[in-house]
Amino acid sequence: MIRIEKLTKQYDGATVVDDVSFEVERDSIAVIVGTSGSGKSTLLRMINRLVEPTSGRVLLDGTDTRSEPAHLLRRRIGYAIQGHGLFPHRTVAENVATVPRLLGWPDARIRARVTELLEIFQLDPATFADVLPHQLSGGQQQRVGVARALAAEPAVLLMDEPFGALDPIIRAKAQEDLLDIQRRFATTVLLVTHDMDEAFRLGHRIAVMSQGRLLQYDRPATLLTDPADSFVARMTGLSDRALKLLALTSAGEAALPGSSEGPQVAASASLREVLSELLWRREPSALVLGEDGAPRGHLTVAAILARAHP
């Protein structure tokens, strides 16, 4: 759990982060969204003390982050940044092994961990372990960057615009990978982005920042249905908020008892996807199937539309 208490950062009298407090639950993803200059990166960097706060404090599982030297704190916290920041003179395996080496893990454990991570990130160790970063594609570099951040099994992962340099298709894949990884390792993730769609796709909670202040910290659906002010409403997007809301609910959650002769949809699909499918096929209802292929109920266009507003 990350608890941020009254965190403030001033540079030469200018307040970059202004009295921000919120809490990130264990095993969840919180996303900080804001325009450039909103202070979101500075806020993130105060958590691993790359920036020292002017006032306020950060607690990790109840312990003040200032209770140990900054470099030891950072070895316990995963950190992934935009443009990956891989070390160009070190191989992929050496890059991933960075923090375990700093922590003095035995060689065998490091090797096993590097192999495990490369496999998880779909980078065949035999092909990629001894390759230098510049020989990888942008998407592969980014995956190595995240693998490196997770190498020492940190409970907390900080990500600063980690997918900012990727093209849309690779970015979508990277986002899905992150969701898988987060579930798999039960990591607490705090991610900074300027992209509200990314925030909605990834965040269990979203913090909206502007000019150093935290405007709202809520579940994505609440940001849509109950924005704190007009800035948050504009940030989340007024023109497609009904569809955004539908995208936040899965077919499995919304399924009603009963069956349907219409198309079959997966329980993990979002209501937005199911609605689109029904409109496209001109069908009134769909059959929802669980992961095991067993029917989980049905959805009608009317039932979906009923969920498209507060």
Partner: peptide
């Protein structure tokens, strides 16, 4: 030297 690499190195806990 790539500033991203230096930033990553510090962020991962190098002195």
């Amino acid at each position: 030297v790539s500033q991203a690499a230096v930033e990553a190195a510090r962020g991962m806990g190098m002195t």
